[in-house]
Design a binder for these strands. Structure first.
Lengths: 257, 257
DNA sequence: GAGACACGTCCACAAAGTGGACCAACCAGC
DNA sequence: GCTGGTTGGTCCACTTTGTGGACGTGTCTC
């Protein structure tokens, strides 16, 4: 490795992200598969992280979850990333007025990560999206909403080697379909995901811009397909854009990630 | 080291905690001093953590701060530690009714860490406490409130080797003074810190109990000495105990750390 | 009872991580 | 303007730490 002292740090970061994708916990075997590391290595790193409070091991289920130290450090870090205070009211309004679950995601490099959720009142819901879930840009409505308003050369950089960027999602998201989605998003102002990740689970999203005018975050709604018919899409899109604009205005003083 | 693969993990955790103590950032030299590690080691670990987004380096000030990935992972972990939703309303009421700044801390092993803050309206404030600050149990009003209601043998374990536990704070917190504080806290139900950390900066705290009846968290108020005179202490203590009881009741379903 | 899978541990080996030494830049004091 | 101290950054010989193939145990399914 190029930089000494970086291998373990990189592995630690990878394991924390993998555990963070599933708030319900992840098995040792699952982490071995997903990380590509060997079992003794993963086991040793996990138990070391747990000793420091960064992870926890649930002996009942055998699963590994994010630990109290991560929560504590995250609380401290939150003071530098104030968007939760700004996003929560918008999420509540979106959930209240639409009945769907509303989400706030942010961009991290070439992917989005869901940070906040506000459950809607409608009794049938999609659980494709929840805190910690990461998607490549262009996958899911939040990532499509963000990618559509990136500078054209940044979009081409991702589309140019779409399978490398989209990974396993490339199968359900052919490049031509994604280009079409991006174009329709630019025209409408909001993105629509017609069940590309999971059939029957639809979503709509709108980008939130930072003070440099870059799409750094996104608001989105998810639910079952009958709740996203064309007649209702305009209504949902309008609300999403309203809240996204409201957030963009308030985030002028905030620091993008 | 006993467990292979643990040394770097322990160092990473230590550095993250040290950086987390100062939201405004910490210099490389400061981290070298406080960690006891050599400069090449600290520098290499810091740049590796920054490459993963766990830390950030502000080139303008040269300081290291917690990065966006910590914030993201912390948001995910927050779903498993729901006390912020429960604590925030209490903090707002305490700050509104007293004018002082209100804090929510939790116990981690033998220390407390401040997680939430609600600033009061009174124009003169103490800044001894803020997010990320850690104190040994028995130091600061939050830690005194918690320690006072621990089982007697756990208290003796800490008092028995007080300098080892309290570290640098042992000078300003002699063991006999601490024992006295603990006794008065048990009688009153709330703790009073008469400027032991910093002269003129007073504090009061009350423990919040988990469903096993153990003191796992604390609410506290801080401010300048004239705001904590005996005639006003009873009023502040009553409010703290009310909010602490209210939180204890609501935290029955929550998971202690 | 056999086979598959998950989890945990050992330890020989090698790769990664370490820190003493050195250099450059900056700042404060005289 | 010079000197000394402090901070940040890097090199690389050396050593320690970290690794993973192999093995064992436990659980579950058929």
């Amino acid at each position: 490795m190029a930089v000494q002292g970086a291998q373990v740090v990189g592995r630690v970061a990878q394991l924390l992200r993998l555990v963070g994708r599933k708030p319900g916990g992840t098995s040792l075997a699952g982490l071995v598969r997903e990380s590509g590391l060997t079992r003794p290595t993963v086991h040793r790193l996990l138990t070391s992280l747990a000793a420091e409070g960064l992870l926890e091991h649930d002996p009942g289920t055998g699963k590994w979850v994010l630990g109290p130290e991560i929560f504590l450090l995250g609380s401290v870090a939150a003071a530098r990333f104030p968007m939760e205070d700004i996003a929560r009211p918008s999420l509540r309004r979106l959930a209240a007025e639409t009945g769907e679950s509303a989400f706030f995601s942010l961009r991290r490099g070439n992917e989005t990560i869901c940070v906040l959720r506000e459950e809607g009142a409608f009794p049938v819901r999609s659980f494709v999206l929840h805190e910690g879930v990461r998607f490549p840009l262009g996958v899911a409505s939040a990532g499509t909403a963000i990618m559509a308003f990136l500078p054209p050369e940044e979009q081409e950089a991702l589309l140019g080697d779409w399978p490398a960027h989209a990974g396993d999602f490339a199968v359900g998201h052919p490049e031509n379909v994604v280009r079409d989605n991006l174009e329709r998003t630019r025209l409408a102002g909001y993105a629509v995901n017609p069940g590309l990740i999971l059939e029957g689970s639809w979503g709509m999203g709108a980008a939130v811009f930072d003070q440099q005018g870059r799409p750094a975050w996104a608001l989105s709604l998810t639910g079952i397909e009958p709740r996203f018919r064309p007649d209702r899409q305009e209504f949902l899109g309008k609300l999403l854009l309203e809240e996204a604009h409201r957030m963009s205005a308030r985030l002028q003083g905030a620091r993008p990630n």
